[in-house]
Each structure stands twice: as C-alpha cells, then as structure tokens.
C-alpha cells in the first residue's frame, strides 16, 4: 500500500514537471498513427483492388501479362514488409537513402520518414485485409452490378468496396491500435513520440517505474478511446435497423398489392402524382412493343 502511494506521488510529481512533454508525445503518436493508418489503408485499397481485377483467357495477352506482373509486384511488397520488423525497415529506409545515394538524398524531416515507414507497413497488412474483404462479398453482388451494365470500376466503387470496407472496419481498427503502440519503435530514427519522451524523461531523473506507469495509462487511454470511436463508426456504417414506410398514395399499399398505373382511383385522378405518373408512363413506353 505504501508502495502504491509512493508510486502515485511520484507520478504526480512527474506529471506536474513534464506534462507538456507527455502530452506532446501523445499528440505526435496520435498524428503519426492516424495519418499512417489512413495512407496505409489507401495503399492497401489500391493493392487489394489491383489484385482482384479479373481476367479471362479471352482478354488480350497484354492485359493478362500486365495484370500478372502487378499481382507479382504486390505480392512481393506484401511479403517483404509484412515479414520484416518495422524497426529494421525504419533503419533501412531512413539511413539507407543517404547511404545508397552518397548523401545526396536524405529525409528532410523525420516526420516524413516516420509517416512513410509506418504507412507502407500498414499498407502491406491492409492489402491482404482488403483482398479478403473483396472476396468475402457474395459474387451475386458483382453479377447484379454487371447485369445492369456496370463496368468493373463502377461495380467496385459503388457496390463491392462500400461493403468490403464495412467488413474490414475491425481490421482497420486493429491496425490503428497496433500503430498507436508500434510507432514507439520510431525512436530509432529519433522521432519524438510518446515513448521517446519517456526515454528522455527517465534519462534526466531516475523515476523509471512511475514514468512507465504514466506511459501505460497513456497508451491504454488512447487505445480505449480508439476502440470506442471505431465501434461507433461501425454502428454508423450499418445504418438504422428500422425504416419508415413511405405513403405514396392516399390509399395504403401493402405487400403484394399491385398498383395499376392506368386504373387508379378517384382520389388519384385528382392528384398531381397520378397525372405525373401517367405522363411518365406514356413517355417511358408502357405497351412497349405493342403486340
């Protein structure tokens, strides 16, 4: 009990001295995680779409070769960035660029480097999630869209991706939460996020454990809020569970009732709607074909 009180006192002391630093770290971590997750999702989306463009033996040789090549490249990208630690990727990219270009090129800001690294890392994971999301959508949806004349791109944009995105929302959330925590390895390129400030602060005094406790609470708070927001977004995407019936005529139409456009009722005939409907009917060819 005494230990806990002591810990609490130390934490308060730390917080009153360094709260600005901690909060700065939280801010940097959140911005990096958020921006990188968004960019990563876009990369993943593009890769996932490229990976699922269908081709048949009927297509031209050129199209088939290009599509196979694209799939190959995406595959290599996914395997390399998913299969190596982000710490090492950071080292390779941040220090590798000046190394390979004999110092003629280097990252002007550590922010740009950090965002780039975390983004392409997230993108590699998201590419597979998006691919999974797309193939999880019932092929009937694609056929329905094709049957009304939609092209592949239109089908994707209007029908498949909105549903696939909804289905992979938990994955996007996962990635965001992982990014909040894993951006801590960016200290290797001296990016000052939440954890980097902990290293700095414990370097100037010896209150290692109280600072770690503050970090724990900080990270947990960030991820809990993220979880909560994501749940809310998912709910919002699902839309309402109920719907309102729309009264079109004065007479209620129930399921199975067939409305006869040219019979109508005395109520209808006086209504503007009825006249409009008749006009539409004439224009759009009832009695089409006229056998």
């Amino acid at each position: 009990m005494d230990k806990l009180i002591e810990l609490g006192q130390d934490m308060v002391k730390l917080w009153s001295n360094y709260s600005g630093m901690y909060l700065d770290g939280v801010k940097n971590t959140l911005i990096l995680a958020l921006v990188a997750t968004v960019i990563g999702c876009i990369i993943g989306l593009v890769c996932g779409i490229l990976n699922t463009i269908p081709y048949s033996p009927n297509d031209s040789l050129f199209k088939r070769v290009v599509l196979k090549l694209i799939r190959g490249i995406v595959r290599v990208y996914v395997e390399v960035f998913r299969g190596t630690p982000m710490v090492l990727q950071a080292v390779f990219i941040f220090y590798g660029l000046p190394y390979f270009t004999d110092n003629t090129m280097r990252f002007s800001s550590v922010w740009a480097a950090a965002i780039l690294i975390v983004s392409i890392n997230t993108g590699a994971y998201m590419a597979e999630s998006v691919r999974g999301g797309i193939i999880s959508i019932d092929p009937g949806q694609t056929e329905g869209a094709k049957a009304i004349g939609m092209t592949h791109v239109q089908t994707m944009m209007n029908v498949i991706l909105p549903q696939a995105l909804r289905n992979i929302m938990p994955q996007i959330g996962n990635n965001f939460i992982i990014n909040v925590k894993d951006t801590s390895v960016m200290f290797i390129i001296s990016f000052t996020e939440f954890f980097a400030f902990h290293r700095y602060i414990t370097g100037v005094n010896n209150m290692y454990f109280p600072s770690a406790a503050i970090e724990m609470i900080g990270y947990l708070t960030m991820t809990l809020i993220a979880s909560f927001v994501l749940r809310w977004v998912e709910k919002w995407m699902d839309g309402s569970d109920s719907y309102e019936l729309v009264q079109v005529d004065q007479l209620t139409m129930t399921a199975g009732t067939y409305s006869h456009p040219d019979r109508g009722t005395p109520f209808d005939e006086r209504s503007k709607e009825y006249r409009e409907r008749t006009r539409q009917g004439l224009k759009h060819g009832r009695n089409r074909g006229g056998r």
Binding site: E244, Q247, V248, S259
Partner: peptide, 24 residues
C-alpha cells in the same frame, strides 16, 4: 422519378427506404 414509377408498378413504393436485408 423513373425508379419510383417502376417501384410503384411492382408495389414496392412504400418500401423505398428499406435495406434489402429488411424485406422479404
């Protein structure tokens, strides 16, 4: 307007705000 004309024709005009999972 065009969609409404045909939805009325098939007797589904009252249900325009429903999602497919909500109808029979």
């Amino acid at each position: 307007r065009h969609a409404m004309f045909y939805l009325e024709k098939v007797g589904m005009a009252p249900y325009i705000n429903a999602k497919p999972r909500q109808i029979s």
